[in-house]
């Protein structure tokens, strides 16, 4: 299954991101958008799956600089 995820940043001016990933995003996971790392705070389905694709919306909050190593794993780390 491929997860197409809309990441929306809570608060601030960051426009968020859309990206595909092979792991289902989970609350507490970290995601790299541009040169910043965010923590996922909520995940829900946007529309029904089609073919091998599942469509999700996730809200994220920016991690303070230096907090990227704490807590959850990024998609990249999960793939390693």
């Amino acid at each position: 299954m491929i997860y197409k995820v809309s990441y929306v940043v809570i608060g601030g001016e960051h426009p968020g991101a859309i990206m595909n990933q092979t792991n289902m995003p989970q609350v507490g996971d970290h995601v790299e958008i541009g040169n910043r790392v965010f923590e996922i705070t909520e995940v829900h389905e946007v529309m029904p799956p089609r073919g091998d694709f599942q469509f999700l919306h996730a809200t994220v909050r920016p991690l303070p600089d230096g907090d990227a190593e704490a807590g959850g794993k990024t998609e990249k780390e999960k793939g390693e």
Partner: peptide
């Protein structure tokens, strides 16, 4: 990843979205 930026002629160019793999 890429960044999509729009210049609306009023104010500074603004980032609209980041797009990743796929």
């Amino acid at each position: 990843q890429v960044e999509v930026v729009i210049d609306r002629r009023s104010g500074a160019p603004r980032s609209q979205i980041y797009l990743g793999q796929g």
